[in-house]
Nucleic acid binder design. Structure first.
Lengths: 223, 223
DNA sequence: CGCAATATTGAAAACGATCAAGGGTCGTGG
DNA sequence: CCACGACCCTTGATCGTTTTCAATATTGCG
């Protein structure tokens, strides 16, 4: 199983390319035909609206990530484009009675579901047993690991992060106000900066240690 | 895709049956050969030990549930038998380079991963955006829905629940002490009883309404 | 330039954790 | 058969974290 989805393979399978503008809905849970989407570019967010009026973000889908509309329907999630997003869409062969797609396609889907599972497992533990600083630090380290960081700003690692503080709060289960305070604390502790859509890890090693971040679940060569 | 794993099919595929006594480890994350296990009987719990010394239960595996040791390794989870547990074990064909198993097996694995995903998604939202009473109520309703309830005790629905209050706390991210108080509140509000390993829903409808429980994610005929 | 969305800060209140102590139940061994 | 220990459940009091409410910057965008 490859470490990452072979996007090139997928491009050549006759999927339909679609784009979504920032803020638009990629799929709701009462959609048309079931589809499998692979994100080629941009950030998307899977979220649930709860009856109590709050929102929760269950997953950010990044480059190479998969969106199964069958799955989002089952999970009662909505997927929305955070930035402009490009995807390739396929009919959702996974729910057909017979194997109808190249067999390696099944392996790709299973791999994606597993990576996804590993992230959710980590995030569950995160939300259940860690405090605000650990949760937010963890989330930002996860995102940095997944999108990949560059080096600049006095040789610190950084990455572009199009999320608002509210998005992050909705993803880690904290109020926007508190995310703001946590970010200030991290800034004052010279751990990281988050300004103008850019996250700079001022001291990534210390941060990772502080929030005990373990890349295993994200930087997967296993699956 | 079937609503449930066709255990009969699986039994006839030459898997090896194994049993584990209550409390023993079913797999840790440094296990031997990767395997796929299907639980025939009993309750198991997937959990993570965090560096801060706390435990978090990411999933309870019940009758018909699947355990992939590849996946638990990736997620750095440990699986422990809560009660005595019987499983059928297969080599983990999902990580082989070629399709090596009956193709419907792939569909079974994908279905299980999706159901699993839907539960985790629901639990994430639960932990992130609901209070203690809602979380615990939700968890018990989820378990009741998954194992199936019987009627007795003045015609109330009930089910056998082998978990301790500590287990539940570790699964919903609350302290044991607080779980205890929440259970007392629910008892005093005539919503449910949890005594001697039995959960009785005294007023299931009102409870489900109070914690806004939605069975869609659990009672799946879709996948 | 002005509006809307986002970020920031303070003060008060709520919620859940933690600490500490006691009670019940079960199984084992004397 | 009883005593003991292990484990689980229960309750009270206190402390800390995070939420909420409210008000004010700041930024981005048409």
């Amino acid at each position: 199983m490859a470490a990452q989805i072979p996007i090139e393979h997928i491009r050549n399978l006759g999927g339909v390319t679609r784009t979504f503008t920032a803020g638009s809905a990629i799929c709701g849970y009462d959609d048309e035909a079931p589809r499998l989407l692979f994100v080629l570019k941009g950030w998307a967010a899977c979220s649930k609206m709860l009856p109590n009026g709050t929102r929760f973000v269950t997953e950010f889908v990044l480059h190479g990530g998969m969106i199964s509309t069958t799955l989002t329907a089952l999970s009662r999630e909505t997927v929305r484009a955070v930035t402009n997003v490009t995807v390739v869409a396929f009919p959702d062969f996974t729910s057909l009675p017979k194997i109808e797609a190249p067999t390696f396609f099944y392996r790709i889907v299973i791999g994606e579901l597993m990576r996804h599972h590993a992230r959710m497992s980590e995030r569950l533990a995160n939300m259940g047993r860690r405090d605000a600083l650990e949760r937010t630090g963890h989330m930002l380290l996860e995102l940095g690991t997944r999108v990949g960081t560059s080096r600049d700003y006095d040789n610190c690692e950084y990455f572009d992060c199009p999320l608002t503080q509210a998005d992050i709060g909705d993803a880690v289960g904290l109020s926007t106000v508190h995310i703001n305070r946590v970010l200030r604390d991290m800034r004052e502790a010279h751990l990281l900066l988050f300004r103008n859509g850019i996250v700079v890890f001022l001291d990534r090693a210390r941060l990772a240690d502080l929030v005990d971040f373990d890349e295993t679940c994200f930087d997967t060569t296993i699956i």
